[in-house]
Amino acid sequence: MSDATINSTVNQPEAGFGDYVALLKPRVMSLVVFTAAVGLLAAPGAVHPFIAFCAILFIAIGAGASGALNMWWDADIDAVMKRTARRPVPAGKVTADEALGVGVALSGLAVTMLWLATNWVAAAILAFTIFFYAVVYTMWLKRWTPQNIVIGGAAGAFPPMIGWAVATGGVSVESVLMFALIFMWTPPHFWALALFMNSDYENAGVPMLTVTHGRRTTRTHIFVYTLLLAVLALGAGVTAIGGPIYMAVAVVLNAMFVLGAWRIWRRDEDSAALDKYLVEKKFFRLSLLYLFAHFGAILAEAALRPWGMGGW
């Protein structure tokens, strides 16, 4: 790089270290860290604390890398959507090629280091998760089908399975149930968001259910998926990851969640517009608490087990 090219960029926004961190979607990462840690701690068998810390770190880096690859590919639609317009690539702070470089480099680092630190099963699931999010969801499903977030939601559901695999070296019914919990939770969570951010997706040409099938159908889908989720969440309570604490949390939160979904289903667009989508926004916020509380309860059951109190 010559001085001329260096000086020509002086007036353009300069990327700071924080902008590269923002490529990794830190907020999504916090969910990944939490659910992966629960999967790891709820699994039978002890993991050395430092190895557990490193494993969670590499899982988080892998998730962040797939976020960077998503920002590389989706820079065009991120620029159109209000919610994403300030991301580093559409804001012009980081180039799309840099995002690609960061994504590929960190993907390789995260998978290799997780393999060396733990086992190949955990590393293989992490590699598949990155592939699924970056290629299957971002490049293929997102712009093609309104079922994008239903199938794509699997990518966000893998972290507890990876955590479990770190501790056990394999896959089990319990880890699949934790996967299923996030998988079934994702559609109502995102469709509620789509209901009050609808024009965003429409402007970007993303075929969200609200855009392709209308809001009425989306409301019905939210209600049906929430019912299925409630059955699954309560069913998980009678397995090895459940227990009295989990069951109490699941009963209360699923009742609230089903009630919220039922309210969304009953509403029409006029009344929703009148109170600025208050019910939908409340449901979206509740969905965040829902997931954290369920995984928190699984963690509490696992933490109490050494004292003979966790589980059934």
Binding site: V10, E14, A15, G16, F17, G18, Y20
Partner: peptide
């Protein structure tokens, strides 16, 4: 200009 970025890296 790039001090913060370099220290972070």
């Amino acid at each position: 200009r790039r001090k913060g970025r370099n220290i972070g890296l």
